[in-house]
């Protein structure tokens, strides 16, 4: 029963939309609504050959993957000390501190991004403070630059890395670290030889849990990022809404998904690891 429901759900919500997008990607653009014509001979399809031949899309995809990798890396780097710090708190304080960390995420995503815009803009509090302290003469171009983009990305995705890592580290055996310390390891050596390797699968899963959605992220770069940074998400958006080349947009969407199949499968494997 449950299996049948799941199959139905998957067919309706995953397979069917994917089939529609695949069909559109094989169509040819046309005037009118919808702006494409199905059933054209495959030889007339321009979307896939263009996607493969034009370096513009490959570059956008590569830039997106790089942004996602750096975001996921930063999230992981922040998550380890945060998770370990949380676990050192007295148990009765932990839920409160976790609650404080999650509090910003109770606010709508767009509002949070708007708050970043306010903070980062030339006349915002960060630049005002730096100017007042005499540390800078001109406002730093934080907003609509790479720094603003990374800040927004890391802030948006941090909990996706933090929570699984926190769960994995809270389930670890503290005796392993004690044994390492007893055998002569300093705290840093304990971390790198025991804590980190023993949580490697969880760290990998946490990395991918950020990497996969971040690769297709569209809103954060749009609101905070540099206008010239062409990412996969924006390239797809442009084709859909500006060029109205739906077959090309559909093909680019599928290409992004295909690139992410590997990481998704890897994430599922890591999730099952002990």
């Amino acid at each position: 029963m449950i299996r049948a429901m799941a199959a139905l759900w998957l067919a309706l919500l995953v397979a069917a939309p994917l089939a529609v997008i695949a069909a559109i990607s094989l169509a040819v653009p046309d005037e009118g609504l919808p702006p494409f014509r199905l059933g054209a001979p495959l030889a007339d399809n321009e979307a896939w050959p263009l996607l493969a031949a034009d370096g513009f899309y490959a570059a956008a995809l590569l830039r997106s993957l790089l942004l996602a990798a750096v975001t996921a890396g930063c999230c992981l780097l922040l998550s380890y000390p945060m998770a370990l710090g949380l676990l050192r708190l007295p148990a009765r304080l932990r839920p409160w501190v976790v609650g404080l960390i999650l509090l910003p995420f109770a606010i709508g995503f767009v509002l949070r991004m708007a708050a970043w815009v306010g903070l980062l803009r030339d006349s915002g509090p960060i630049n005002a403070a730096l100017l007042a302290l005499g540390l800078i003469a001109e406002p730093l171009p934080l907003l609509y630059g790479w720094s603003g983009l990374f800040l927004g990305m890391v802030h948006s995705y941090l909990i996706f890395a933090l929570l699984p890592l926190y769960a994995a580290l809270s389930a670890r055996d503290p005796r392993l670290e004690e044994a390492a310390a007893d055998l002569g390891a300093s705290p840093a050596v304990v971390f790198f030889t025991v804590t980190l390797p023993a949580s490697a699968a969880a760290a990998g899963a946490a990395f991918l849990l950020v990497f996969i959605p971040a690769a297709g992220e569209f809103v954060v770069p749009e609101l905070l990022g540099p206008p010239e940074a062409l990412l996969a998400g924006r390239a797809i958006w442009l084709e859909f809404f500006q060029s109205r080349d739906w077959p090309l947009a559909a093909a680019a969407s599928l290409a992004l998904l295909l690139v992410l199949v590997g990481p998704i499968l890897l994430w599922q494997r890591l999730g099952r690891a002990p």
Binding site: D182, A185, S186, P197
Partner: peptide
């Protein structure tokens, strides 16, 4: 701290490092 004390401890649950071979476990100290 424990690492500077001349004694060694054997834990009840053994606390062997699961990501290392037996050889590397013994070689750790």
């Amino acid at each position: 701290p424990p690492r500077l004390r001349p004694c060694a401890m054997m834990f009840q649950s053994y606390a062997l490092f699961p990501h290392m071979s037996v050889h590397d476990n013994i070689a750790y100290g």
